[in-house]
Amino acid sequence: MSKNKTDEVIIRGDMTKAKWTLIQIKKYRVAYLMIAPFFILFFLFTVIPVVLSLLLSFTTFNLLEWPKFIFMDNYIRLFLDDEIFLIAIKNTLVFAAITGPASYMLSLFFAWFINELRPKIRALVTLLFYAPSISGSVYLIWTVFFSSDQYGFANAWLIKTGVINKPILWFQDEKYIFALIIAVALWTSLGTSFLTLIAGFQVVDRTLYEAGAVDGIKNRWQELWFITLPTMRPQLMLSAILAITGSFGFGYIITALVGFPSPNYCAWTIVHHLEDYGGQRFEMGYASAIATILFLMMIGCNLLVNKLLRKVGS
């Protein structure tokens, strides 16, 4: 203990910044011990893989021989020579541009509506909306619901009511695949970002509403726009990040629903392209270039939306 006291006596004075930092590091060395286990693993399994993937994207590498440096060739091949990659980019962007904002808006409005309910019902309805996202592979039930024979629920009722006279091949027909996977993706997307918003609504200070009513807020829409949303901007930001990151990560659902590859590549996304070159053809350099582009797209979208959200409140 006496040691701590001597530490406190040291004043910054006219020390150089480096020296001061060094003293601080010594003083708080126990903190570095505490973060060490987590951050060693974090660097090992998150930072290093990202950097390594960036480096490998400039090489050709098949796991057996040492990587060969080829500079931008992988990227040139991706954009000029790989038609399927261009389909993948288009699908990924369209898919993310629809599911990201849609899931975000649904989360926001459902969270808002649920917040208007009485606490007990609130808990139940929250569970109803949240359940699909935590129930593992339950989304596969959609393939049974929309199965291609007349015993699938959708086909049976459309036939019964006379809308169609022979079963529709829902998950094989390009006309329906995209809409269906978006529906399934949205159905499973009310996850953590939704819970964040549910919680956000609950912490808004109630007296703000009373004050707002005095200041001439007339209805619940104005209340939402002028009081609630600005107050819960931190939750809006986190929720947006989770929604955007999620909207790029639905590849596994697509594979499970329509197979790999999807008919005529109509639901082929960058994640699938990555899987194809990394997991099956073992062209690791090329696959790393794909991964790097996916990485840049996710970070780019997030930073952009982050900037926009920051402006909305002010």
Binding site: Y28, V50, L242, G249, G278, I299
Partner: peptide, 30 residues
Amino acid sequence: PFPGRTGLFKLIVYSLMFNSTVVGITMFIL
């Protein structure tokens, strides 16, 4: 209040902005 904590936390926030499919290949190599 140890030096470097804000930087480390920023790194964590950035890591929320992409998901693990990106590092799948290099993770396998590791």
